Computed example of a mutant assay.
Amino acid sequence: MHATVSDHRSDVAVLHLRGELDADTAGQLSAALAGLLERPVPRIVVDLTGLKFCDSVGLSAFITSKQVISARGGWLSFAGANPFLAQLMETVGLSRYFAIFPEVDDAIAAAQI
């Protein structure tokens, strides 16, 4: 898995993920999120467009991060999930806890509301 961050507006970061997120690469996700979690009020959109696979270890990293983010008054949302990832998130119930948008721009626009 490869992770990069881009800032949109002064208060929203987009975490772009590519490849496969699993037990072998979850540490990379945690490292990428660690810097974003240091922000006073983390507002993060996770761009899943390039993510081809995610297992339970990867999902767990998102859940753990959400707890920290929520405690600081921020939020984490997802955008651009392929059909496999969208179905996975629905099946495990993540759609009840995370906002999931079709496109990154939609997630960023929702942050302005």
Rank of each mutant, 00 (worst) to 15 (best):
E90G: 08
A99I: 00
L94N: 06
A32H: 03
S6H: 15
L94R: 07
L21S: 00
G35K: 08
L94W: 00
R39I: 00
L17R: 07
I100F: 01
S10Q: 15
S56P: 13
F78D: 01
A3E: 13
C54Q: 00
F53R: 09
G58I: 01
F101Q: 01
R9A: 13
I108M: 11
A71Y: 07
S77Q: 08
V68K: 10
L36A: 05
H2D: 14
R9W: 15
V92L: 05
D106N: 13
L37T: 01
D11L: 09
E20W: 12
K52R: 15
L48M: 12
E90Q: 12
S10W: 13
L59H: 07
D11G: 13
F101N: 00
K66F: 13
A32P: 12
L21V: 02
C54A: 07
D105A: 15
S30Y: 07
L33M: 10
A34K: 13
V41M: 08
M89E: 01
P83H: 04
W75M: 06
L29E: 06
D47F: 00
M89K: 01
L21P: 02
D24E: 15
G50P: 08
A79Q: 09
K52P: 03
F78I: 01
E20A: 06
D7A: 14
V5N: 11
D24Q: 15
F101I: 00
I113F: 14
V12C: 07
